[in-house]
Nucleic acid binder design. Structure first.
Lengths: 393, 393
DNA sequence: CTCATTTGTCAAGGTAATGGACAAATCGTG
DNA sequence: CACGATTTGTCCATTACCTTGACAAATGAG
């Protein structure tokens, strides 16, 4: 009923001090208490108290001593990485990638398994098995896991976490995957669109470091985009921000047939690409890999197919640029990350938009979403543990 | 050098309490000290002290007493609106609108003058004259002004405030309007794109209240869009977010001729509309107003011109929707706010995009940017006066 | 070994917030 | 009109946190 501004137990002032100490330690690596005092402006006394509490609770640990300078040697402290472990899972149509990471974002264990094609409830079981495999691999225990971040294809409701449309994975629209997994393992689960996670991955440790406005464009079987705007993930009102499948580019958007897949996806998805290749005179039944091989050999129909895809993608990036004004567009996905395609896009872009954004190929390739999940997990653990909430009247 | 976490003079704890009190008073109107205590969770004693300090500094003032309920009557306090005044200026190609508002966002004085066509430095002089006219009108003094928010057309550099392209106003690209005005009057000046301000206006007190994701689309002589994403203004990397003039819609984006105005603006600006009207057989030399009059009379060429503009705008909104997933699109500008056009857009939209956003006509019409400037000014004054900064190591 | 230098602890003092007691002021009711 | 119930606002003692200054501990340089 009444708003509580000071925390339930720990008073607000000590919370803020603790927060400042943690942030200083995280930003400056192994560091002595005296140094923390200088950087935070708090007194040595206070720092000693806060550090003692944090060490008792297992968050900080002494890691070494200073030397080489005059004066008494100082004990240096560091975040105890093992104090918080999290799992990141990237659920794909054919494969599941999963990893355990610690509080500092170090990868402790990582593995990949084929997706259980039965989908639905069987996926929950598979996740649990995979997590226990990861624990065995890393020598950790399920008890020390604090959080699971799950990346899936499809549009997610920002509020409930319900998956609206995931064409490649059967039986996930009927169940609440997030809730089921969370209740089974008794751990909080964050669910997020996989392309959004890929964008987060690039922001965390890829090309997007220190870039406040960029987009991750994925082209593969389907199309999608993750947006970082003002330094944060942009989900939109219904979680459908970045659903570029429906861009009115590459076809007639008023054609009711385009509603199933979306105009843009119909024009540049892998189906469209091979169809176009065949249309230009390429070999019947060719896959996208065949197409790029043919391009390598200089086959004209392959060149034409890729050029057209690049032209349409450049138009899409122009539309995105006119809306979001990103500094950078990162290309990913089995098609989008191909250097030949990206090179062609770079050629087309300045011809259809003034002041085009920089174009880069994903730094993490198909691991971007997995990495992004870890980034979110680490940020979330930090917020959870050390965040300061001022309340909202 | 050293990071100061606690404020220079006022300790952090008192700052937070003060902040909580201010927010509670702002949110709950006239309110007694006991009530503040209940809502914030702080003790009555603390509230009394904080309120006494705030009253001494002129921020709060007692406004009345409670009655009608059992128990001792309470003195109710309110923000002293006159403690902070700000100016909002909307610089247009033909007119300048300006207003003074107080800390609560009440409009104290408002006026409109024709823009000095000589532009450049003369605008600074005109702003100063207008502000002193406003002061005379409101009976206030220049000394109590804390902030000026200036809205202009064109793309602004988010860092420097430099105006990059403002076709309607001569001589503003060569000078730093923000800096000049700020130095002349010795008041901080915030400069912002006018369509962004219009979006802020709708967010503050228009259709965008409590809507975290929406876009304000302006169609008139030119085209533009202001974006509220995640509840905040989206400027993009170079301040060009929402520059929908360059959307690759309504023409061939690879046509080098489209670079001057942008493909979309070339297709739906007022020039394009009248040209299209004439092309469909309308009267030579007709203005946009004539066109809408003709539509009113059921003239087929006018109907066709408006239908085509609506069709293209629906496509643009589809593209914006695929990127941003707004809950709402607010239409503004001399053309965009026309009900006939909006009605047509509403008809076209479901045919080219699934799950289309709500479409509304601007709540403030051509005053939206002026109102938005006030909203920003009020928010900024609040942050300035009562914001809590935790520092950043 | 001695001195300068830096680290870390101890003790004392100050500020802000809490909680309880209590006076002040008002409404409702007999 | 008096009295109890109720709410407001102040006073006082106590607690929690942070700071200052003094001082012991530990180390490199000469």
């Amino acid at each position: 009923m009444a708003m509580i501004v000071s925390g339930e137990q720990t008073p607000i002032a000590r919370k803020i001090s603790t927060h400042a100490v943690i942030r200083t330690v995280m930003a400056n690596g192994p560091i002595s208490r005296a140094d923390i005092a200088k950087r935070t402006g708090l007194s040595k006394q206070t720092i000693s108290e806060v550090v003692r509490d944090l060490e008792q609770d297992g968050w900080l640990k002494p890691t070494g001593r200073t030397d080489g300078r005059p004066g008494r040697t100082a004990i240096t402290y560091e975040l105890d990485a093992a104090a918080g472990l999290a799992v990141s899972i990237d659920l794909g149509g054919t494969k599941i990638a999963a990893a355990i990471c610690d509080l500092l974002g170090n990868i402790v264990a990582e593995l990949k398994v084929p997706t259980d094609r039965r989908g639905g409830i069987h996926l929950v079981e598979q996740f649990c098995r995979t997590i226990s495999d990861l624990n065995a691999l890393a020598g950790t225990s399920s008890d020390s896991l604090r959080l699971i971040v799950l990346g899936t294809p499809g549009v997610l409701d920002p509020a409930t976490g319900h998956i609206h449309a995931a064409p490649n994975i059967p039986g996930v629209e009927a169940i609440n995957l997030r809730q089921l997994l969370s209740e089974t393992l008794d751990i909080p689960v964050i669910i997020e669109n996989d392309v959004n996670l890929a964008a987060e991955g690039e922001r965390w440790r890829g090309h997007g470091i220190d870039v406040d406005n960029f987009a991750f464009v994925a082209l593969g079987t389907g199309t999608g985009m993750g947006i970082i705007a003002n330094g944060a993930l942009l989900r939109g009102a219904r979680g459908a921000a970045g659903e570029i499948s429906y861009l009115p580019i590459g076809g007639d958007p008023f054609d009711p047939g385009g509603f199933n897949l979306g105009t843009f996806e119909t024009a540049v998805g892998s189906m469209a690409m091979t169809r176009r290749y065949v249309g230009f005179g390429g070999r019947q039944g060719a896959t996208v890999a065949d197409l790029f091989n043919a391009f390598e050999c200089g086959e004209l129909s392959a060149v034409a197919a890729i050029e057209e895809t690049a032209r349409l993608t450049a138009l899409a990036i122009a539309a995105i640029g006119a809306t979001l004004d990103p500094e950078l567009v990162i290309m990913g996905g089995s098609i989008g990350a191909r250097p030949e395609l990206v090179e062609a896009i770079r050629r087309y872009l300045p011809r259809c938009t003034p002041d085009p954004p920089r174009i880069e190929i994903s730094h993490f390739g198909n691991r971007a979403a997995l990495i992004g999940g870890m980034g979110i997990a680490v940020d979330h653990m930090h917020d959870d543990l050390f965040g300061v909430d001022l309340g909202e009247p």
